[in-house]
Design a protein around this nucleic acid. Sequence first.
DNA 1: CTAGGTGCAAATTTTTTGCACATGC
DNA 2: GCATGTGCAAAAAATTTGCACCTAG
Lengths: 131, 131
Amino acid sequence: MQQKRNFSAKREAIYDTLASTNTHPSVEWIYQKLKPTMPDLSLGTVYRNLNVLREIGLARSIGVVNGQERFDADISQHPHFICTKCFRVTDVPVGRSFFDTSAYEYISGEYNVRIYGHSLTFYGICGSCSE
Amino acid sequence: MQQKRNFSAKREAIYDTLASTNTHPSVEWIYQKLKPTMPDLSLGTVYRNLNVLREIGLARSIGVVNGQERFDADISQHPHFICTKCFRVTDVPVGRSFFDTSAYEYISGEYNVRIYGHSLTFYGICGSCSE
DNA sequence: CTAGGTGCAAATTTTTTGCACATGC
DNA sequence: GCATGTGCAAAAAATTTGCACCTAG
């Protein structure tokens, strides 16, 4: 990512934190993670930078889970599983395709719309919460 | 709906409003719609009743769109299209299946999870917004 | 009388933003 | 010096909730 080279130290740290976890964290999670080693970090900066990262295409929103927006540095369109009890968000590796990729053009044709993405989310109870 | 028969006048009105539109409205939208003919309706009541309706399975959340939660009285699991410019939410009738229904058991098997639902949402620009 | 439903306003929670200051080029 | 980034705190926006009251049964 040559673009990353121009990042400020804080934007870099925020991106790195997001990119190095698979928890699909919230703003608050990232803030708490960085705060100890970056005591002068403010919450507003995390909000602002996640929005910047989203705008330039280095991050994506998983949606609002239990009142907080969750983010992912993995831009590829892959399904997620959300536990509605502990609110953990898990990647569902696309070892196979659940999804008919002709859907985009089909829907674009039926309706008069331009589609540029989709999100597929499964809801349920995870293993830990079932015990 | 025999259950509906026991609804209070306001819960009934809120459900009816939700059920008779295809706009996938927000709390505020329903409130504004009912307020003229129901001047003593309060916003809190709309919030409370939508949560009740969701709990008893007569409504479902489409998710948070542009900062506001959107609801649907159509419980069936069907895809939606969201215009990221005007934030209109449109049903995508499942004239065909984009979705491999073996996904649930496949994922449940791979992971140790119990799946009870999913949501499939397409993002893009609608016809009106493209002009 | 009791339980459930409601208005109202305050409180909570999440996210955004105005402003002054700092930093790198 | 200028554009960008940031801390801080206030503001905004959405949602929840405490409390008193009210109404149906």
